[in-house]
């Protein structure tokens, strides 16, 4: 390459560098969980950073999956996330299946329940973690108003998204509250109970298939919801799948030689077989 050509290359590189330096920087202000309906509950269509969010609901109402979706969104941006696991129930393989980058997820399991809120405050205030999940389920911890405000303040100062997972019997105070409720087989309902930024009362129905990476194929399904109140006599009202339609659904036979049809339990339980 002669001198003129190399000078031209240098000049082109210089122009490119100047263009890159002059380009506006992008800053992360919110997280998109990519769960249809959930993001739309917030102004701007995404979960804003710097806020404390409470997901309050019964067990198996989809709170943890929603929180892990937010953690996965942080991981997609190359950010760090932390999960303060009070009940020690987080199952990382499931989190990985939900898209969480486990290399960027710090799991903290304090020994004493009293350290849970303090740990979350430290993680949020540091600003090193974009998303912090505080799981208070099955811990017996109920946050008072002062602790809730301290958590919200830490999230605001650190620019983190703090997600609290609480049971209905011990909700937190001083934070944005969303309730989750399983609605039969269709999915879960998320409703905004309290939000100073507006949007209280908004609801969204989220299908299980948008939360789970591999939604189960139910082979036995009740035809209709039973009436409220006392359960009637138990009958086997399941619809057997039609032959050739759904027989081998689910995970059955995915590993030849090991997954086989389950033998009936009826003889061992003393029940009659037909």
């Amino acid at each position: 390459m002669d001198g003129r050509a190399s000078a031209a290359v240098v000049e082109r590189l210089r122009e490119r560098i100047q263009k890159l330096q002059a380009a506006p920087r992008t800053y992360l202000l919110s997280l998109r969980t990519q769960v249809a309906g959930f993001d739309q509950l917030f102004p701007g269509g995404a979960v804003p950073l710097g806020t404390a969010l409470e997901l309050c609901g019964e067990a198996a109402s989809g709170r943890t999956s929603l929180a892990l979706r937010a953690v996965a969104a942080a991981g997609r941006e190359g950010r760090l996330a932390a999960y303060v696991d009070g009940p020690r129930e987080l199952y990382p393989p499931a989190a990985a299946a939900l898209g969480v980058d486990l290399r960027r997820l710090l799991v903290v399991q304090p020994k004493a329940p009293g350290q849970l809120a303090w740990t979350a405050v430290q993680l949020c205030r540091s600003g090193a973690f974009t998303c912090v999940v505080l799981d208070l389920t099955h811990t017996g911890v109920r946050l008072c108003l002062a602790e809730g405000k301290k958590l919200a303040d830490a999230a605001f100062r650190g620019g983190s998204l703090l997600i609290l997972l609480t049971p209905p019997e011990s909700p937190a105070d001083g934070v944005v509250r969303l309730s989750t409720r399983a609605v039969g087989l269709s999915g879960l309902e998320v409703s905004v109970l309290r939000n100073r930024q507006g949007g209280a009362g908004a609801r969204a129905l989220i299908g299980w298939e948008s939360l789970c990476p591999a939604p189960p194929v139910f082979r036995h399904r009740r035809p209709e919801a039973p009436p409220e109140g006392e359960l009637g006599p138990l009958h086997p009202p399941y619809q057997r799948p039609k032959s050739g339609v759904d027989r081998d659904g689910g995970l059955c036979r995915s590993r030849p030689g090991r997954d086989c049809q389950l033998p009936s339990l009826a003889p061992s339980l003393g029940l009659s077989t037909h």
């Binding site: 067990a59 943890t64 999956s65 892990l68 991981g75 020690r88 129930e89 987080l90 199952y91 393989p93 499931a94 989190a95 990985a96 299946a97 939900l98 898209g99 969480v100 980058d101 486990l102 290399r103 789970c212 990476p213 591999a214 939604p215 189960p216 138990l234 086997p236 399941y238 995970l251 389950l262 009936s264 339990l265 009826a266 339980l269 029940l271 009659s272 077989t273 037909h274």
Partner: peptide, 29 residues
Amino acid sequence: PPDGEASLARPPRLFPRAAELQAELGEQG
């Protein structure tokens, strides 16, 4: 990130110790 066992459905919450469940079975088990 690497998928891991993304193809399998696993619960996000796994209890440290499995609790015995009283289940009622139908005739077909």
